[in-house]
Design a protein around this nucleic acid. Structure first.
Lengths: 233, 233
DNA sequence: AGAGTAGGGTGTACGCCGTACACGTGTCAA
DNA sequence: TTGACACGTGTACGGCGTACACCCTACTCT
């Protein structure tokens, strides 16, 4: 009876509802705030109830990755391999920008889920139908690494820039010990005056590296590269 | 008095001793087993004693990264930029292979420590003295991303391969849903018969991608690439 | 010589976390 | 009617990071 009253307020749990709530919570509050207890609270349920739908927290995270993998645009057909790959990867990137926690979670996964395999399989397929050997495709996939997901490791994760004066002072201090880094920081700071934003243009950086790799792949393919007969130049 | 007896058995704590013990513990037991409590136990000390030497666990991890950054070989001089960069990065890679936990910790750091800045500064310097513009150097650094540290994101982190029969069965099942992935898996499995190891040759994969990027940088430099005048081909 | 002070190890306690386990309770099949 | 099953509940355990109050020692200053 009491449960029925509850049921009126909240639909019954399901694996899907749990996963979607988890994604929403991570989006809103950050991945560090995602605990089984908080998630349960969000769903108006006692923590242990979740364990009827996911085996443990690891599997919850796996499921969350699956959910967002499903948000990536379906693969395009009938276009040349490079555009197809780029398009798919940039779509993945858009998804990951909507879910900033996802990159860290993807990195931490220890074995791929079906949705992840589907995604990777489709990209491998693009190389293969684009005329790449199994060998070269294999190494290209490794070379792409996490870039397949549309993110690259940020070395300095966008420090919040204080007022310009402060910034100039810090730059000066930086220059004493790290002259080369300071040089770049200065150039970036200067660019900012024309472009908006508080750091590097991440999208540009990402696409720059992606094109560099794709062009490299193309060149190797044209030269009939194989791993036993290396001629990178 | 009691403390003096203790002192005979264990030297006094220091930031350095704490950090080294933390690195050793992470090496031996894995980063997941590294807790302030376990570390304190290892040092024969009460957990809170650590907090006189590191502000909190985050700073402990920062310090650990600094320790291993110090293990990277010093930069070489008087050789062309590409060899210098490659050499330094491969040295970093060797360090990281000795400390398998380090890549995950590095990724999780939120602001760079001095030793990290030193390392990055030296690599930036190699590009600059090698004739790269500030602009191109900047983007090259981003393109390298975590590869600067000698690791790349592994998408499938080396699943433990069971007996060959089992493996063949799994491959067959894989082929039904993920034909392209299976194709690669089959090729890798075949290679294994001649080469030892239970998966891809990580070192080869790493160097393949590194050379691809370095060659790409070189080509852009020769063509006088700038970010406002893009001609990647 | 005595008082004061700073540095560094200790003990206790709090509020989080993931989750094992035993227990309802509602639904449906036999 | 009875039993099985699915699923939400309640309690409890052992771990975590760390705040805070406390010593005890060594050293400085008068």
């Amino acid at each position: 009876m009491a449960q029925q009253v509850d049921d009126a307020r909240r639909p019954p749990l399901s694996r899907d509802r749990v996963l979607r709530a988890a994604v929403a919570l991570a989006d809103d509050a950050g991945i560090d705030s995602l605990s089984m207890r908080k998630l349960a609270q969000e769903l108006d349920v006692v923590p242990m109830a979740l364990y009827k739908h996911v085996a443990n927290k690891e599997q919850l995270l796996d499921g969350m990755v699956d959910v967002i993998a499903g948000e990536i645009d379906p693969p395009a057909h009938d276009i040349e391999w490079k555009s197809a790959v780029r398009q798919r990867i940039l779509s993945a990137r858009r998804v990951l920008l909507r879910h900033p926690w996802a990159s860290r979670v993807i990195e931490s996964r220890t074995s791929p889920t079906p949705a992840v395999l589907d995604y990777m399989n489709s990209i491998v397929g693009m190389f293969r139908t684009g005329g790449f050997s199994v060998d070269l495709t294999h190494h290209a996939m490794h070379a792409l690494g996490s870039r397949i997901w549309g993110f690259s490791q940020e070395l300095f994760p966008a420090s919040p820039s204080p007022d310009p004066e402060m910034q100039a002072a810090m730059l000066h201090q930086l220059a004493a010990r790290y002259p080369y880094i300071a040089e770049i920081a200065a150039a970036v700071a200067h660019d900012e005056e024309s472009v908006v934003g508080s750091g590097c243009d991440d999208q540009f950086e990402f696409e720059f590296a992606l094109e560099l790799l794709l062009d490299g792949f193309e060149r190797l393919r044209q030269h009939g590269w194989t791993s036993t007969n290396q001629s990178c130049a």
